[in-house]
Amino acid sequence: MHRNPRAVLRAAVAALLRPAAATAPSAASRQALPKATPAPTLAEWRPLPAAALPGSGSRRAFSSSAADYGKDVDEVNRKFAEAREEIEAAMESKETVYFNEEASVARDAANEALAAFDALLARLPPADADSLRRSMGLKMEQLKAELKQLED
């Protein structure tokens, strides 16, 4: 069962705000700390095996091919961010002489991001495609809606 985060925060703040004399342990209650072991020298140091590193287990974004598709997902995210920036720039230039050009650039960027997302979904195995659709599908729908707002 999880603790109430507000209660935990209140207790932490209360402990921090107490006077130092009230929270300092007496000399009788202090225990001797164990001596620290010296750090290994450079000659003794050996890297950990990959299996021992944090996050190297089975908790991956995509089950079998995270390394294969990670760069492609990053590329789709980059194109998405670029398209949003272009749409924002076009919206700011609404009712100016630059709007048509800005809107055209924004449309091209958004269509490129959507096409990259669809191409990536087509290449992924079904389980990974579903996972990607769940994690990025709403962003792509948001991009479509913003593009539609631009057209209005």
Rank of each mutant, 00 (worst) to 15 (best):
A11T: 06
L120I: 04
V97H: 10
L143N: 04
E44G: 08
M140L: 05
K94T: 01
S58E: 15
V76A: 04
L53P: 00
A36L: 09
E85N: 15
R84H: 06
P47L: 05
Q149S: 14
S58H: 13
A21D: 15
K94M: 01
D118T: 06
T37I: 14
A39G: 09
A61Q: 09
A89Q: 11
N4E: 12
W45N: 05
R123I: 11
A145E: 01
G57L: 10
L120W: 07
P125Q: 10
R107W: 03
G70V: 01
R60Q: 12
A21C: 11
S93D: 06
A43F: 10
A119E: 13
S104V: 01
R18N: 05
A119H: 13
Q149F: 02
R10V: 08
A81D: 02
R6N: 15
R10Y: 07
A81H: 00
K148W: 08
T37Y: 15
L33A: 13
D130H: 10
A15R: 07
A32W: 07
S93T: 04
P49N: 08
I87K: 04
S26D: 09
L16M: 11
L17I: 05
K139N: 11
A90R: 00
A21V: 15
L147A: 05
S29H: 12
A81F: 01
L150W: 02
M136Q: 13
S56W: 03
R59S: 13
Y69L: 04
P49M: 08
D68K: 12
A113T: 06
A106V: 01
R46P: 00
A24D: 04
G70D: 03
L143Q: 04
K35L: 12
H2F: 15
E85L: 03
A7P: 02
L114T: 03
